[in-house]
């Protein structure tokens, strides 16, 4: 996991992409900013190319059919947006779960794109990868976004200690938190990251009124694991916020992990069962998406 802290001080952050209009990243119409880099390595990740930063190995350069990739004089992989045809050959050939199509952007550069979509949106959501790796950048970005009268939401895996540094919460409406696994062993296997901090965040964000929603992915046939997570989250949040029960889908998941988790998506009825459990435990706003 390459460090990004140094770049944050320079107020540049690696941006995977910016989607001007999104209807699935929080309430209303939102501009979503996806940052590159994530401390988790979730087996079911749909966008594994957002996990790591490019190592400049150059393997993707020869795979590009449009001549949009090259190695520059300093040995870095350079991406020419104007030539790119979006075929994702580079992403498929990358052995490091990274992408050459990342822009190191300043807050002002990101704001330029947000200002363009501002007339049509309710707010901005930052996502990833894991956007809280860019904590200092987010604080500056949200401060600017709020000047436009727009709301700010953080889509997070919960790896950042919000209680220790709550500044970003002060300039945002709150967090949409993934609680992927509660059982310790299942979490270690599923996301390769200790989940104590995630559970601590769940409690803390709830206590300060900054928990916008919680999401849990339901895996086919994993009764015990699914139940442990849903039961825990539902009892914690009660009716305080949305609880989105998400069906596991194999699309985009790395092949070796598909074999482990399932090559078929979670049945709707099966997911609904867990939403019902959540509601019966008091999570009134639990539903399947």
């Amino acid at each position: 996991m390459p460090s990004t802290g140094g770049f944050s001080i320079m107020k540049r952050a690696p941006v995977n992409r910016i989607i001007p209009f999104s209807n699935v990243d929080g309430p209303g119409n939102r501009t979503s900013v996806f940052f590159q880099g994530c401390p988790f390595n979730c087996l079911f990740c749909h966008n594994p190319e957002t996990i790591h930063l490019c190592r400049d190995c150059g393997i993707c350069v020869s795979q590009c059919p449009a001549g949009a990739l090259s190695l520059d004089n300093e040995g870095h992989v350079a991406w020419d947006r104007t030539r790119c045809v979006g075929c994702d050959s580079c992403i498929r050939s990358c052995p490091h779960d990274a992408s050459p199509k990342v822009r190191w952007m300043t807050v002002e550069e990101v704001m330029r794109e947000i200002r363009r979509s501002a007339p049509y949106i309710d707010g901005v959501t930052t996502s990833g990868g894991e956007c809280t790796l860019q904590n200092e950048f987010l604080i500056d970005l949200f401060t600017e976004v709020r000047k436009l009268g727009k709301t700010c939401l953080i889509d997070s895996n919960g790896s950042f200690d919000f209680a220790a540094d709550p500044r970003v919460l002060e300039v945002s409406e709150g967090v949409m938190l993934d609680v992927k696994a509660v059982e310790r062993e299942w979490s270690d296997c599923l996301v390769s990251f200790p989940n104590a901090i995630v559970l601590k965040n769940l409690e803390y964000l709830l206590s300060v009124g900054k928990l916008h929603e919680v999401r849990t992915v339901i895996f086919p046939g994993r009764d015990r694991e699914n139940e442990a997570t849903v039961r825990y989250v539902a009892q914690q949040i009660g009716g305080a916020c949305l609880y989105k029960i998400i069906r596991y889908r194999p699309y985009g998941v790395r092949e070796r992990y598909q074999k482990l988790l399932g090559e078929y998506e979670t049945e709707a009825d099966y997911a609904e069962r867990w939403a019902e459990l959540a509601r019966s435990l008091g999570a009134a706003q639990a539903f399947v998406v």
Partner: peptide, 20 residues
């Protein structure tokens, strides 16, 4: 199809564009 569940994501687009 997903917009059927999120009509509130369309209204700001309409409002913004008419205002512009």
């Amino acid at each position: 199809e997903t917009y059927l569940k999120t009509p509130e994501a369309i209204l700001p687009i309409i409002k913004g564009s008419l205002a512009n």
